[in-house]
Design a protein around this nucleic acid. Structure first.
Length: 573
RNA sequence: CGGGGUGUAGCUCAGCCUGGUAGAGCACUUGCUUCGGGAGCAAGGGGCCGGAGGUUCAAAUCCUCUCACCCCGACCA
């Protein structure tokens, strides 16, 4: 492609609306333009990257034996009423009426449509297992679209749905999809982790999210230094500390801590490690108020806490007034000693001896407190968020000896074992070997294709712009002539080389504009072309060409007649 | 949906407080010079100041109402 015939809409100044790096760079590089909140046009440059991601996804899905279909974006309400989601999905479902006032929606996902299709088309266990996918625009009327295409309302998604005769078959396909997703993100060229995820409202036994690691990611992920363990921090199990609780030492004693409330204030005032203190949080239980106790340096994991049977379903903290009633003091001075309400302590807090806690009296704390002796032995549970350096729970496979580090991630894929949630509601059955009607267990597997593009930029950029991984770069090679308009020889040589490169199968962008070199270099860096060739009269005289990889600090010289084999070795296909 | 903010040239913004002929830089067009890291000079095109009402002799500016967009929270590929 020649730049003179390509819509290269780079802008020097960052549009005010953009906040994140990928959003800024996608606008500046001329990849996308906004039409409305969360709704974007993909310009030629952006679409090239998007299509490359799409192609990799399609190849790997096909390789995994999935069949491509294309389902309608607009779907009749009846299907959604049948699955029960017409009412449950809420305002995120964009609803519309046709000229006959019949209800439709713009598909945010396609479980209903595929289940309807399959219950009509598949009758026998002989046709199973079967896995169908599509790559198609979805619409979700997000409360707050942001970060450009990272969280758009309209976005390109690969969604796949598998159907099975039994759970064992579902488990097998799930493993295949897990491996397929890993291949996909590996090929795209991103640093990623499959992460154990909460099955939550959707139910089912297994779910993994695939996260691209990037500092700007919205999710915190705990990753093991030694093994493959990775989990959303919300999910990551905190192992109980090793060994037994030490025996009580000193007798308990009340101390004045005037005006000191937070753990930080109290521990600094008493010159004590926050690890020797506990914090007490009061929440609503199914009966009355319940106290949750954590070690001072730990934070409550609200997801874990909400799962405790003793607690009210959405986790609710009590008001300061209710704290006064239950503990007899302000929130900064609560402690487990003498509390008349049930106490649930995190494993680490329960393992402390001679610790510091609030005295349930304003301005006072207790030191050398011990469970059993001073405070009632608490119910023990895993309540806290894991922190950097925690031992790896090792997916239950024994001790790997690694420690956890906390990284940020962008969720680009999610795989689920759905079970029979939809097939049951919509009566998708087949006959098994014995001629019995069986409800098909299902799996579903999504990849945010357009989000992958943004995530790739979040992970790969510098001050000058995007740095594409070779596999999804809109162009692999930037061919930059110096003096294209002036030097007949340069033009001839560059045109010839361009033809040869294209013939050799490279995606080449020839910048044949009558621009100063600085402008061209800046543009090529901004749009992130991973390999750059520069040719001018001074190189021609040497019979050589200049090559620079986008990440390289300095360019190097390549004999002109070696250009193609040289690039063959440089460019990853 | 709650809280905060912004709408003026294609982009980034000034002008608004204190009403009186709509501006700058970048981008765009033309010419000349320049030519390995976002050039210089000159000339030019481009605005219903988000929209609707009002106050006033006079409104980008003051008032009311609307719409759109952005940022912070709960959701998700």
């Amino acid at each position: 492609m020649r730049v003179s015939r390509f819509l290269l809409s780079t802008v020097r100044e960052t549009p005010a609306e953009a906040e994140t790096v990928s959003h800024k760079l996608m606008l500046r590089a001329g990849m996308i333009r906004k039409l409305a909140a969360g709704i974007y046009t993909w310009l030629p440059l952006g679409l090239r990257a998007l299509r490359k991601v799409e192609a990799i996804v399609r190849e790997e899905m096909n390789r995994a034996g999935a069949q491509e279909v294309l389902m309608p974006a607009v779907q009749p309400a009846e299907l959604w009423q049948e699955s029960g989601r017409w009412d449950r999905y809420g305002p995120e479902l964009l609803r519309l009426k046709d000229r006959h006032q019949r209800d439709f929606c713009f598909g945010p996902t396609h479980e209903e449509v595929i289940t309807d299709l399959i219950r009509r088309e598949i009758k026998s266990y002989r046709q199973l297992p079967a896995n169908f996918y599509q790559i198609q625009m979805k619409f979700r009327d997000e409360i707050r679209p942001r970060f450009g295409v990272m969280r758009a309302r309209e976005f390109l998604m690969k969604d796949a749905y598998s159907f099975h005769i039994n759970e064992a078959s579902l488990g097998e396909t799930y493993q295949v999809m897990h491996a397929t997703y890993s291949r996909i993100f590996q090929r795209v060229g991103l640093e990623f982790r499959p992460v154990a995820a909460d099955t939550g409202a959707i139910g089912g036994s297994h779910s993994h999210e695939f996260h691209v690691l990037a500092d700007s990611g919205e999710d915190a992920i705990a990753i093991c230094s030694k093994c493959e363990y990775a989990a959303n921090v919300e999910m990551a199990q905190a192992l109980p500390p090793m060994g037994k609780r030490p025996a009580p030492g000193q007798p308990m004693q009340a101390v004045d801590t005037p005006g000191k409330h937070s753990i930080e204030e109290v521990s600094r005032f008493l010159k004590i490690d926050p690890k020797r203190t506990v914090k007490t949080l009061l929440v609503k239980g199914t009966g009355g108020v319940i106290a949750l106790v954590l070690r001072g340096d730990h934070e409550l994991n609200e997801i874990k806490a909400a799962k405790l049977p003793q607690l009210a379903k959405p986790l609710v903290f009590v008001t300061p007034g209710e704290v006064e009633l239950a503990a007899g003091c302000e929130p900064g001075s609560i402690g487990p000693v003498g509390l008349k309400i049930p106490v649930i302590a995190d494993e680490s807090a329960a393992r402390l001896a001679d610790f510091v806690c609030g005295a349930n009296l304003n301005g006072k704390h207790l030191v050398n407190v011990n469970w059993g002796r001073d405070a009632t032995e608490p119910v023990v549970a895993d309540l806290r968020k894991v922190v950097e350096g925690d031992p790896c729970p090792d997916s239950g496979k024994g001790q790997c000896g690694g420690t956890l580090s906390i990284r940020r991630g962008i969720e680009v894929g999610h795989i689920f074992q759905l079970g029979t949630k939809y097939s049951e509601a919509m009566q998708a059955t087949v006959l098994d070997e014995a001629g019995q009607s069986v409800v098909m267990p299902m799996g579903c597997y999504g990849i945010g294709v357009s989000r992958v593009v943004a995530a790739a930029i979040e992970q790969n950029h510098d001050d000058n712009g995007i740095i594409w991984p070779d596999a999804i770069a809109p162009f692999q090679i930037a061919l930059v002539p110096i003096g294209y308009g002036k030097s007949e020889k340069v033009r001839e040589t560059v045109d010839k080389l361009y033809g040869e490169l294209v013939h050799a199968g490279f995606d080449v962008l020839l910048d044949d504009r009558d621009e100063r070199p600085g402008v061209i270099f800046a543009d090529m860096d901004l749009i992130g072309i991973p390999h750059r060739l520069v040719l001018g009269d001074k190189w021609l005289a040497k019979g050589a060409i200049e090559y620079k990889g986008r990440r390289d600090k300095a360019p190097r010289e390549v004999p002109l007649d070696q250009t193609i084999p040289f690039l063959g070795a440089q460019v990853k296909k």
